Amino acid sequence: MPGKTVRESRISMSQLMLPQDANPAGNVHGGVVMKLIDTTGGVVAMRHVRGNVVTASIDRLDFLTPVFVGDLVHVRASLNLVGSSSMEVGVRVETENIHTGELRHAVSAYLTYVALDENGKPMTAPALISETAEDLRRRDEAEQRRKVRLGERKKHRG
């Protein structure tokens, strides 16, 4: 199976935040933002394997700034690392005030997806080809996060 480059599956999605996305104070629910993160990350993983994936984990989420009704939310995601069947996708969320053009970094997250075959069983994912210095940096950082995740999993199962 031939490898694929980071740019082949990279994606950017945007969505306007509406009143149904928010609490009475006008702040968008964290769960709405989390769903956008998982959807965008999942699309990246699906584009890479050209098949189904399942979310295996989401690393820590820190909301750096609130997201408000009326903000245009931009979600950018790309692959950082591919194992045998698992893939780490990095996701960055920015909000844009449509009236002023101000952009704010709202959230970043790393998600792990597992590629699934037609029977819903893990399958081999294509290798990831890192083309740029940025791709390589992100891959190296992802390898360190993977080691931490595997160590945590061992501790929880122990």
Rank of each mutant, 00 (worst) to 15 (best):
V114R: 06
A22V: 10
S108N: 14
M123R: 15
T65N: 12
V89G: 01
R60P: 00
R50V: 09
A56Y: 03
Y110I: 10
N27S: 13
P24A: 10
V33W: 06
M123I: 13
V82I: 09
Y113M: 11
A77T: 01
S86K: 02
S108V: 08
D21V: 02
V75Q: 00
N119S: 15
P122L: 13
V33P: 04
A106D: 06
N119V: 13
R92H: 07
L36H: 05
V69A: 02
V93R: 01
D117M: 13
V89K: 03
H99D: 14
S84T: 13
V82M: 02
G90M: 01
L79I: 11
T65A: 14
K35F: 11
S86I: 00
I98F: 00
N27V: 13
G83Y: 00
N27L: 15
T95Y: 02
V28C: 05
I98Q: 12
E102I: 13
G120C: 15
E96H: 08
N23F: 08
V49P: 04
M87D: 00
H48S: 04
P122W: 11
K121C: 14
G26P: 10
D71L: 02
E94V: 09
R60F: 00
T55C: 12
T100P: 09
G83D: 09
T95F: 06
V28R: 06
D59R: 05
A115N: 06
R47S: 03
G42E: 07
D59N: 11
A109N: 04
N97S: 12
A25P: 04
E94P: 05
K121M: 14
G42I: 08
N80Y: 00
E94G: 07
H29V: 05
A45P: 04
A25N: 14
I98D: 05
V44T: 12
G101R: 12
A45E: 04
T40N: 05
A109G: 11
V67M: 01
S78G: 09
